[in-house]
């Protein structure tokens, strides 16, 4: 069974600023308190294609306490490694992030896709973020008998965390806006 849901959010900031904020979202110490479920973010690999202006990055994201407490109890660990693959196309202005778990795979699969594009109504000033998350409990795992409840709880948790993520993104954008004004003055 797969539970999937999508969300859309419009940032009233240009694409360049929003995607800069996206890179900084996990590393800024100010945000660490809000995003307390993120333990560590490491860049594992990156590649720049100087011809096309595309940047490929792979990061490891270590998440604390995936899902609700009873899931942690069953799977017996409270740390989960995820891999985030990002493509930024500077020429067409698009950023795509794809994140999936690489630990706990025998229990569940979570995939999150995020995309940042200039907003069609105001491409130079606004950015639209589309997010799609799917959660799948493996059919024969110890979690299968309560799959529906687990998926529901996981979905709630993800919703809470993505709301926090947006809050952090808005704050980072304001900060970057102030910083760019400071430099311009």
């Amino acid at each position: 069974m797969v539970k999937a849901y999508g969300q859309e959010h419009v940032y009233k900031h240009p694409w360049e600023r929003v995607t800069s904020a996206s890179w900084r979202k996990f590393s800024d110490p100010e945000n660490k308190r809000t995003l307390s479920h993120i333990v560590e973010v490491d860049t594992l690999n990156h590649k720049l294609d100087p011809e096309s202006g595309k940047l490929y990055t792979t990061r490891a994201i270590t998440v604390h306490a995936p899902g609700p407490w009873f899931v942690r109890k069953i799977i017996g660990q409270d740390i989960c490694h995820c891999v985030e693959s990002t493509v930024v196309d500077a020429r067409t202005k698009s950023m795509q992030l794809n994140t999936r778990n690489i630990s706990l795979q025998k229990f569940l699969e979570v995939e999150e896709k995020i995309r940042y594009d200039p907003h069609p109504d105001n491409p130079n000033e606004w950015t639209v973020c589309r997010q799609e998350t799917s959660i799948r409990i493996k059919p024969l795992s110890a979690l299968a008998s309560m799959a529906e409840k687990v998926e529901q709880k996981c979905a709630e948790k993800f919703m809470q965390n993505s709301a926090k993520g947006r809050e952090v993104m808005e704050r980072m954008c304001k900060y970057l806006e102030a910083e760019s004004r400071g430099i311009a003055m």
């Binding site: 690999n45 990156h46 590649k47 595309k54 693959s85 493509v87 795509q96 896709k113």
Partner: peptide, 25 residues
């Protein structure tokens, strides 16, 4: 120390590994 993660350190990034792009790119 995580084997799954260290694999990514060594691997060359292949764009097609990044999954199917969401429409249009």
């Amino acid at each position: 120390d995580d084997k799954h993660l260290s694999r990514f350190l060594e691997a060359e990034i292949v764009p097609s590994d990044l999954g199917k792009p969401v429409d249009g790119v």
